[in-house]
Every structure is written in structure tokens, then in C-alpha cells.
Write a protein that binds this DNA or RNA. Structure first.
Lengths: 220, 220
DNA sequence: GCATGACTTGATTGATCGTTCAACCAAGTC
DNA sequence: GACTTGGTTGAACGATCAATCAAGTCATGC
């Protein structure tokens, strides 16, 4: 099997090209003509598959969401099993994106979320679904961390805080054209996690076995 | 003295109107025609004062920066003296903006920072200057907190983290149309601060006077 | 062989975009 | 009372925008 790419359909080509262009230039700054040219498609074909530009955006947002697992988490977590280290491995993945784009990186979801000021309900929901998929994955890590985090700690809330850290860090790194601003936020988040782990270790969950911290720390 | 508003000049009117429109609708989605109509100005006048639309943006960004003190910090900090509480009073101010706009609020700087994907250098610098003004103010609070925070803690880094928390929280609250997402991030930041203060209290600064926490929570 | 339906083609539409420009106005200045 | 200066007016321009549509292609079923 020489090629694994079985000639993507016109529709898929449009979506994939739009994923790239919306990410690079934003939704409003990507004209339909840009998309058509980059995808090698005529306008009639686009409007055969999609009622309008916004429907392309919806398809793109669905594709982003579906890609979070295979395209983002899978490579980020390769060889990383410790659930807490997975949180920071994901953030490290974003850091990689930042340096690789010379600090031009922006989270496509975050960018679109702030760019679209009066989003139609379906667009807003699609953006929210992306954030949910992201935080759900992090929340699963935090739940898997079990007694290493304080019992009373709201895992879902902390997961949202991790997303906050990523988005805020990316935004500042981009604006200042300096990864250091991203690193600052991640480092502070790490310090917070350290405190949480210490707190959990000091006063263990309940009457359960007061076992020590897991020895395999897993990070580099 | 019946009126304190001395009939703003055309230029000022343009800038103030643009501040409002760019904030509400974004830069790209605000057409020059929108701006002209809202400000009650003819196109020729705009181009008499500004070479182009982007120069209006630059003036707006400068105005934002100059307004951080009097328009944002002053009301947020009214009656709040404790430096750490000031940090959270500012965040509470943003919360107010969120609920008042029915979760439609977006930080104008953050929005613009993510909307403008390939900013000309002056625009990028103006955005960065806004972020700097913001974090400088927070950093001053954290420095003023003195021994209540760990000696080794990098105040500037934590200040950036506070900005990160605000931007990420605003972004999620807006996307989900639910303040709870903002509250989540702020609450986590508060927990982090609690840990930091406890750490600083446990192992006081150095061999200095092991004095207790300052009794008067008021700083200034 | 021919009708059907899915898909493609690309010129074209009308709206809107940022910007330009010649004419105009009012208050000083000589 | 002519000249200058700083500002205003609003029609107009070309570019670009998202969207349309009549005509064409092509595989399939009958």
C-alpha cells in the first residue's frame, strides 16, 4: 500500500483547507475566494456542499473537536502515563506549537471564540463543545490522579483552570512574541499543582491507607 | 458648572466611538462606515486626522492603555487597600462586566490580540503595552504584599498568571455564556494564593523579625 | 441510448469594503 | 479683500466580499 491518503473528496478537501486557513488567518480574514483557491475548488462546488461560509465553519469546528483526541492528545501523551504529568505534557505540546511558529501560534478555538463577537447559537455551541472536549480530557487526568490531589478539590474546576492557563499563556506569548510569557503561566500552574499534591500528601484522603506519594514521578 | 464635557473634538469623538465599537464588534467587523455613522463624522474628516483605519486602532489602543488606571483600576480598587484583595477586586470588576453584558463581555485587548493574526509591528507593540500596563499594576500589588507571599516567588510571573486567569476565564465564560466558568478560574487562583500565603506564613522570610502577619489588612 | 441525479464549472451579481478627492467653509493674518 | 490654514462635506472609485446560477460533465440505472 503505497499511499494511505485515498484522494480526499472535495468536501473533505474544503474542510481540511478551511481548518488550516481559519487557524492561520482567522474566520473573518479568510475569504471564500482564499479557501477556494487553496483547496482547488470552484465556488459552485462549495455551495453545493455547504449553504454558506458559516456552515463551513461549523464543519471545521466539528472536525477540530474530533481531532482533539487523535491529533492533539495522542502525540502529546505518547510515553507519558502519569496523569498529572499528562496535564503538563499537553501544555508542553502547546509550547512546541508556539516555538515552531515563532510565537505566532494561537489556539484555533480560542481565537475563533474571541473573534466571533456575535456568534449564531450553533457556532457558539460548537466552540463550547470544543472547550468541553478539552477540559473533559484534562478532568479525566485529574480524576485519575486520585488521592494525589486533595479530596475536596473540584476536578472539573481545576480542569477549566488548566485550559485558562493554556489560553492565557498562548495569548500573551503571541502578543509579546516571547514564549517566556507562556512559560510563566505554566510554571505558576505547576507551583499550584505542587502545593495541591503536598496538601494531599500531608492530610491523606480519609482513614484509608496513608500511603506515600507514588515513587515514579514520570516527568523529565 | 453645568456641563463638564466640553464638546469633544471630531478626533476625540472618533477615538471614543471606535473604542466602543472595536470592543463590541471587533476591529475587522467594524467597518469605517459603521464608525463614521456612529460618530457622526464624514469620511473625509476621518482621513484628515488618520492615514487609515489601522491608525485609528493605534490611537484606540493608546487610549485603552491610558484608561487602565482611571477607568479600570480606580473604580475596582475604591475602598480596597489590601494589596492582595486588590488583585481579586480587579477580577471581581471583570466579573461585573461579564454579568452586566449577559456573558457577552470580552476584554478588548485580548480580543484584538487574537483577532489580528498578522499584526503590523506597531499594533502588536501597542497590544503588548496594554498587557504590560495591566500586569505592572498587579505586580505592584504583589510587591506591596511583601512577606505575605513567599520570598522566592517571582512577583512578575505571578502577575502574568493573574492576567492569564482573567483572559482565560473571560474567554470561557463568553463561550459558554455562563459566569461560572470565570468563577471557576478565579476560585482556583484564590486557592493558589491561599497556599502561597500559608507557605509564606509557615516559613517566614529569613532571619528577620519573625513577626506575625500584619494585623492591619490595609496596606497603604 | 437515454434519462437521472450527483457533482463541477466559472462568469456574474449586488453589496460592502477602505480610501480618495475636489469642492467648500470659517476663522485668522497680512 | 485676497490668502492661508485647519477642518468639513459627501459623492465617487476600484477592490473585494459572499453568494448565485445556468450550463456542463459523468457515472449509474433502466
Amino acid at each position: 500500500m503505497p499511499d494511505t491518503a485515498p484522494a480526499p473528496s472535495t468536501r473533505d478537501r474544503l474542510i481540511q483547507t478551511a481548518m488550516k486557513l481559519f487557524w492561520e488567518k482567522g474566520y473573518g480574514s479568510t475569504s471564500v475566494a482564499d479557501l477556494l483557491q487553496a483547496a482547488g475548488v470552484n465556488s459552485g462546488s462549495l455551495y453545493h456542499f455547504f449553504p454558506g461560509k458559516q456552515d463551513v465553519l461549523l464543519a471545521v469546528l466539528d472536525a477540530y473537536r474530533d481531532g482533539i483526541g487523535p491529533m492533539l492528545l495522542a502525540p502529546a501523551w505518547q510515553g507519558v502515563d502519569d496523569p498529572i504529568e499528562r496535564v503538563f505534557a499537553l501544555l508542553a505540546r502547546y509550547r512546541l506549537g508556539i516555538v515552531q511558529t515563532d510565537c505566532g501560534y494561537a489556539c484555533p478555538i480560542g481565537s475563533l471564540a474571541l473573534e466571533i463577537h456575535e456568534p449564531d447559537p450553533p457556532v457558539r455551541k460548537a466552540l463550547a463543545a470544543n472547550f468541553n472536549a478539552w477540559t473533559d480530557a484534562i478532568e479525566a487526568c485529574l480524576v485519575a490522579a486520585g488521592p494525589r490531589l486533595p479530596r475536596s478539590l473540584d476536578r472539573r474546576e481545576l480542569a477549566r483552570f488548566v485550559l485558562t492557563t493554556m489560553e492565557g499563556g498562548v495569548m500573551q506569548a503571541r502578543t509579546h512574541r516571547d514564549v517566556a510569557y507562556f512559560d510563566s503561566s505554566v510554571r505558576q500552574l505547576r507551583l499550584y499543582f505542587d502545593h495541591l499534591e503536598r496538601e494531599a500528601a500531608d492530610k491523606p484522603s480519609r482513614a484509608k491507607a496513608p500511603r506515600k506519594r507514588p515513587t515514579s514521578r514520570g516527568t523529565k
